[in-house]
Design a protein around this nucleic acid. Structure first.
Lengths: 216, 216, 216, 216
DNA sequence: TATGAATGAGATTTCATTCAT
DNA sequence: AATGAATGAAATCTCATTCAT
């Protein structure tokens, strides 16, 4: 009454038990969003899933929004980690294939919640920035790759590397989404092959024969 | 959403004024979803945007779900209608450019509401089918175009026409959606040019010189 | 989620019924505060007292704070109205007596809620200003009266009119509070007589004999 | 406030450190009430201000009510102690000035918390009695002073000593409280001078010339 | 003694929907 | 047909208090 009272921001859990509960709430929240959608994502459902009471929620999170932010941060981090291409073969086409394969795996498995947030427009400015950062990570990586291929005379120099990265990245991203929404089952490996060949042809990169011969 | 309803089903508006109000509610609802997300999509916001009272809503719609269904139907219809390429020049590349230009010009928004519905998990079976139909419309059209070009010896015969249509269609759809989410302003016509060239190169279609010379 | 949604401010009631409910909620709210204190002042108690449901509250008020503001505004207005001294006799002492009598009556009866708000420190800036305005109304009136008496040679010219008004006004205000908080019953009319004589003597105004002879 | 309690009654702190924490909690509680009102007065805020954990609170206090009781007791004691006029000059007017100066100097704050408790209706019978005792202490002292002056022929014998003490005591108390609520800065010493002169004139006590000449 | 995680009753607020006028 | 007051289930959030460690 007459005074906006903001809960003091909960501090990081001090004990092992506290950290366990904190992490369990984040995991349960994400699972609930992915399985039951926004409508199922209530504080009651989340706390019940973990087996604690209403009030415990606010021991760890300022608000439901706060939990959502932390769920998204965790998912974004996992997705980027999973997408890194650790070994760097000389063959540029092999790199494209590997990047696409990893992206599809990461996006499909780990990031349903990211798509839901993105398109659900449950976006405060923090979340919006976070999602843009994730996209930028992928775009920048592709842009740099294209630029290098152009410099090496292996890709069409007329293409704007950034626009091209946005478009081709969008292709892969959208396919990742469609793949588990479409009713028809798509062969993932075959899709990786097609995406890679389309990507390579689009930028004028020559595709090694072996791959072309055997499209899965 | 999804509450039990007991009120009588509204009939189609009898008067011109009635139709105007009915259509205005659909338009306002869509605008609100696009601009403020699900959280802003309340009966109060919709009726207030149109300037009628709470009760009037139920003169025209059975429920909020009913309005949502009609918003999606309208958006889907508009999207398909606006995407048809009426004049059919012989030049396949010109057809691709024109299709992309139309899609980008008018369809970002419609695509946005459709995707929000899709990922917002506000999906009864009716809506799910409707969305699949819309996608199928585009995929089928592209697939058929690719197949014809392959038959004419103008496109790479090794590509699976359906997978290719899904991937390249996804590229355009994704770009259409993110184009106004990105922080950086993108030149639409330049993007149309890039999308078209990437699409053509990807399937092995030769791009006329005039275009290649002048990439915006 | 992810978006602060502020209820659109409720508009003024459009119908007579609406106005009745609106006013009844304000009246009930005030009664509850005065009789049961802050702890009893819940939206549930207020709506139940009026015989409407939870939700109806928010048809008329943005929040509980909003209701409190309106209760205080109404109480302040009533208090000032009740304190006005309509007839203006020439006799300055008679004016003082009348002002004190009215103030005691108004403060005691009408304004328990003002005291509770004031000392309860349930104060947003709006409320604080409002209360200061009420006090200023009384101080300014007394100050002007003292200044006139000084000009007429009827009051001690060495006194600062404003400080004097604040002090003597405080005396009357505080007595009004004590009167219904003290366990011992005080004769109001006798108190009015004393306050008036103390006030007059304090500023050096001569008190007519008739009053002095008969102190209640 | 007023919840059912089942925990064991804490005993008096045994160690010096214990006493320090105990006293710090009382001091912090009072400060919070005065500065942030009832809304800010939470066990969390109090313990955090002192730098101990939630649970520690219940090492020293049975409940929040218990703390409040002890805050009020401490404030009342401090107020009375600080108000005593130790040296007793013969000059009655000098005594009045000194009493007012002391009251204003130290008592604004203590008076504030006492009045907040009074009007906040957080009153069990213990607290109510305590507050009445504090007031009675002041009223009785002033009453006795007035009576003596009347007996000595130095004050108006027509005044009821008790009513007069209540009224003039109220004046000083009220000024002490509002002095730091008003937007305008008031010179405390000038106010002491005015209060003393008003008090003296009101009871008909002659004011020595030196004071009258130099009103700050 | 001190800690801080856990509790849960209770408060506020939202909003799709109904219905008397 | 239109209005807008009324409904109430359901959601979020608060905070004094307990208790295992």
């Amino acid at each position: 009454m007459g005074r906006t009272r903001t809960n003091p921001a909960p501090t990081a859990p001090a004990t092992a038990k506290g950290r366990r509960t904190h992490d369990a709430l984040i995991a349960a929240g994400r699972e609930i969003i992915e399985e039951h959608g926004w409508a199922g994502f209530t504080t009651e459902a989340v706390t019940q899933a973990v087996g604690v009471s209403y009030g415990t929620f606010y021991t760890y999170f300022e608000s439901k929004d706060d939990l959502l932010r932390k769920i998204v941060q965790a998912a974004a981090g996992q997705m980027i980690t999973a997408s890194l291409v650790p070994d760097t073969p000389d063959d540029p086409y092999a790199r494209i294939v590997e990047a696409n394969r990893r992206f599809l795996a990461a996006k499909g498995k780990a990031a349903k919640v990211l798509r839901m947030v993105e398109h659900g427009a449950y976006l405060d400015d923090n979340l919006r920035s976070l999602l843009l950062e994730v996209r930028e990570f992928y775009v920048a990586r592709s842009e740099e790759g294209i630029r290098r291929l152009q410099a090496a005379g292996l890709a069409n120099p007329d293409l704007d590397p950034r626009l091209t990265a946005i478009a081709l990245g969008g292709m892969v991203e959208q396919v990742a989404v469609i793949i588990d929404e479409l009713r028809e089952p798509l062969d993932t490996e075959k899709m990786v092959d097609h995406l890679s060949r389309l990507w390579a042809s689009a930028i004028g990169l020559r595709i090694p024969d072996t791959k072309t011969q055997n499209p899965a």
